[in-house]
């Protein structure tokens, strides 16, 4: 019987509760990894070497995923290339050049971050794709997927950058003003470099999110399995592949989809490690 009259007991109870929840989080993650590994192990042993070919015909037992791995990466990279600079410049402008509109704009951006991804996908499908189609058919393409993803990751990228800039010591700004540095010069030479690692680590996390996004991409990317050679060509990402085929896949085909899930998990883990490292460096400098 546990009594909470003693302070010691209450503390140890809390400690154990926290340990339990911590262990639960680890167990769930461990469970996911274990299921993916166990499900895909026999397939990996048999088809592992063919996984890197560019030939996805599950109906004929050909499981090359190279084009889809490339698709996942290029779509996310372009999304980051579009959203990253916009997020950084907008955050800096709001904080140092237009502080009066910063609060309302950030509130709006927070709202944007709350829109479900499928809504972005629907907008992409009904507005963006027909619009690109008029420029260069077929419309559903690498570009469409990257633009939709860029819109989706922009809000959080912007908020992370804003926080990173906000955490800089006020003395940097004061010292800069005392030296009568121009605001642009100060931003370029002092503030952005100092906040750089935190900003980049936030962007890396957003890249991971882009890589994992499924529905919105599925709706606008065209989903043809082929090497992405032009911005206007359709591409299929690993996540879209799982979503579009899982419901009807059986046998080896189904296991191949588990294997692609494992691949995605590995890439995300690498990105996460990269993000941690970048943040660690910043703490050493500060």
């Amino acid at each position: 019987m546990i009594t909470i009259s003693s302070r010691f007991h209450a503390d140890s109870l809390l400690t154990w509760l926290l340990r339990l929840t911590g262990a639960a989080a680890v167990l769930v993650l461990g469970g996911i990894i274990a299921v993916l590994l166990i499900q895909s192990a026999p397939f990996m042993l048999e088809h592992g070497s063919a996984l890197w070919r560019n030939d996805w015909q599950p109906g004929q037992a050909r499981y090359g995923m190279a084009a889809m791995i490339a698709g996942s990466i290029v779509v996310s990279v372009l999304a980051l290339v579009i959203a990253g600079p916009v997020a950084v410049l907008l955050a800096a402008w709001l904080r140092y050049f237009a502080p009066s509109v910063r609060r309302p704009v950030l509130t709006l951006v927070e709202l944007m971050a709350g829109i479900p991804s499928v809504v972005y996908g629907l907008w992409g499908m009904l507005v963006l794709v027909p619009w690109i189609n008029r420029l260069a058919p077929p419309g559903a393409s690498w570009l469409a997927a990257s633009l939709v993803l860029a819109l989706m990751i922009l809000p959080l990228a912007l908020l992370v950058t804003d926080t990173a800039l906000g955490q800089l010591p006020a003395r940097y700004l004061q010292a800069g003003q005392a030296l009568s540095l121009s605001r642009v010069g100060m931003l370029r030479r002092v503030l952005l470099p100092q906040a750089g690692p935190a900003i980049v680590s936030g962007l890396v996390l957003q890249f991971g999110r882009a890589l994992g996004e499924t529905m919105a991409v599925l709706m606008v990317a065209g989903n043809v399995v082929r090497w992405p050679t032009s911005l206007f060509d359709p591409v299929r990402t690993l996540t879209a592949n799982i979503a579009v085929e899982m419901a009807y896949a059986t046998g080896d085909h189904r296991v191949a989809l588990f294997a692609s899930g494992l691949l995605l998990l590995l890439v995300t883990a690498v990105l996460l490690a990269l993000s941690w490292r970048l943040r660690g460096e910043r703490h050493e400098m500060a």
Binding site: Q57, P58, G59, Q60, P137, P138, A140, L218, G222, N223, V224, V225, P234, R236, A243, V244, E245, A247, Y248, A249, T250, H253
Partner: peptide
């Protein structure tokens, strides 16, 4: 074109005597 495994795709390919790797789609749907 439809994604692999759907019965609609299967019936389509069978009717036109096509194998899936001969089809050159611009968009694959679920």
């Amino acid at each position: 074109h439809k994604a692999d495994g759907r019965s609609t795709q299967e019936l389509f390919l069978e009717h036109f005597g096509l194998s899936n790797d001969r089809v050159k789609p611009d968009m694959v749907i679920g």
